[in-house]
Each structure stands twice: as structure tokens, then as C-alpha cells.
């Protein structure tokens, strides 16, 4: 079915936002619940925002040569960092996958302009581990909601599909003060179900929401 250009864009966005907000609330409630049970003061709740570029390293897709494979990639994570080895949290974001844009091309159905955009919203459970004073490693698993918008032949179609996947990230950070740190991050997203791979290079900012 075809949607109007405005409504089709709003629909998946709203659904996605609802999903993300619900999951963030669940993580916060869960974390606060464990927080109250803690007597130790060696824990902190860390909010990390990262922004940079996302590169679609394609394994099996036969995309045309003029397809754009890199774009903006952002992520937000909320991590509970206890005194022990592993920290646990949730990560989401908005990652560019690929875009094809062509004007006035000739197809067997006549001349048309084509625009196809794929973006991924990760919904991951992540585990982090500090391996050096300034270096942390993260591994995550969960789902990637692939949101695609295709405009061609005068019709715009927006679709989304959930695909299972894994991620691994290396984060280098420098402390700014007792509450914040700044760094850079390399992340590999393997959307295994779709057999797609995304590499992101981002600047990251870490902020301690709570420490106890």
C-alpha cells in the first residue's frame, strides 16, 4: 500500500519512538530498583551519547556503484557500571545504512527519479568491560529495526523490519571532570539476520547521571 509522503514518515517514527521510550523507562526502573538495594557507593549510572559516521560494509547486497554507503550515525546508551568487571545497559540510536539517489533515469516503465534510504535503529542489550584506564570494550546483542523509505515512480513507501544482530565497540575516553568524559569510539554492528555490517566511528560524551 502507498502512503502520503508525510503520514508514511510519521508512522514508523512514532512507533519507533514509543518502542525506544518504553525500553528506556524499563531500563531506568530496573536500574533504580537495584540502586535502592545497594549499600555500596561504587556504582554509577552512565549516559553516553555518541555521534559520527556510519559506514555500511556490505557483504551480500548487489547495490549499484553510485549508492552512498556512509552517513551520520548516532547512538545513546544508558549503562550501569558496578564496581566489578562487567557493566550492563541498553543502547539505541540512529544509524545510516545506504542511500541511492538518481534523477531522470530510464527504466522499462519510463523515466523516473529514485530515492532509497535505509537506516537502522539498534535496540541492544550491551555489556561493557574496562580493559585499561582509558579504554572500554562493549559487546551487545538484540535487534535492529531497519527503516527503509523508497521514493520512485511517484510513490513513496516506508517500511520497517526487525532483524537480530550483535555489536562490538572499542571506546577510548579522557576524563573531563568527576561527572563527564569525552572520547572516541569504534563500533562494529553485525546485523546477522540481514547479513549486513555497519562500522561507526564516533565521538563520544559520557555523563554520570547517578553515582552511589
Amino acid at each position: 500500500m502507498a502512503y502520503s509522503p508525510i503520514s508514511h514518515l510519521l508512522l514508523p517514527m512514532n512507533i519507533m519512538l514509543n518502542k525506544i521510550v518504553t525500553l528506556i523507562i524499563i531500563v531506568i526502573i530496573f536500574t533504580v530498583g537495584t540502586l535502592q538495594a545497594q549499600e555500596s557507593k561504587k556504582n554509577q549510572l552512565l549516559l553516553t551519547a555518541a555521534a559520527g559516521i556510519s559506514f555500511n560494509s556490505i557483504d551480500n547486497l548487489r547495490l549499484p556503484d553510485d549508492a552512498r554507503l556512509s552517513g551520520f550515525g548516532s547512538s545513546v546508551s544508558l549503562i550501569w557500571q558496578p564496581e566489578y568487571l562487567l557493566s550492563v545497559g541498553f543502547e539505541t540510536g540512529w544509524l545510516f545504512m545506504n542511500k541511492i539517489e538518481r534523477t531522470n533515469i530510464t527504466t522499462q516503465f519510463g523515466s523516473t527519479s529514485i530515492s532509497s534510504l535505509w537506516q537502522a535503529v539498534p535496540l541492544l542489550c550491551i555489556f561493557g568491560m574496562k580493559i585499561h584506564d582509558n579504554v572500554s570494550l562493549y559487546g551487545g546483542f538484540g535487534y535492529y529495526d531497519i527503516i527503509a523509505v523508497n521514493e520512485s515512480f511517484g510513490t513513496t513507501v516506508a517500511t520497517s523490519q526487525m532483524n537480530a544482530g550483535l555489536s562490538g565497540a572499542l571506546d577510548y575516553h579522557l576524563n573531563l571532570n568527576s561527572q563527564s568524559a569525552f572520547g572516541a569510539r569504534f563500533t562494529l554492528h553485525n546485523i546477522t539476520e540481514l547479513q549486513q555490517r555497519l562500522i561507526t566511528l564516533q565521538f563520544s560524551y559520557h555523563y554520570s547521571l547517578l553515582a552511589w
Binding site: I58, L61, L63, S160
Partner: peptide, 9 residues
């Protein structure tokens, strides 16, 4: 599908 431009229903 062997190429990645369409996804979804």
C-alpha cells in the same frame, strides 16, 4: 532477496 533496496512487507 539478493540485493538490498527493498525491505518489509
Amino acid at each position: 532477496i539478493g540485493n538490498g533496496t527493498l525491505i518489509g512487507p
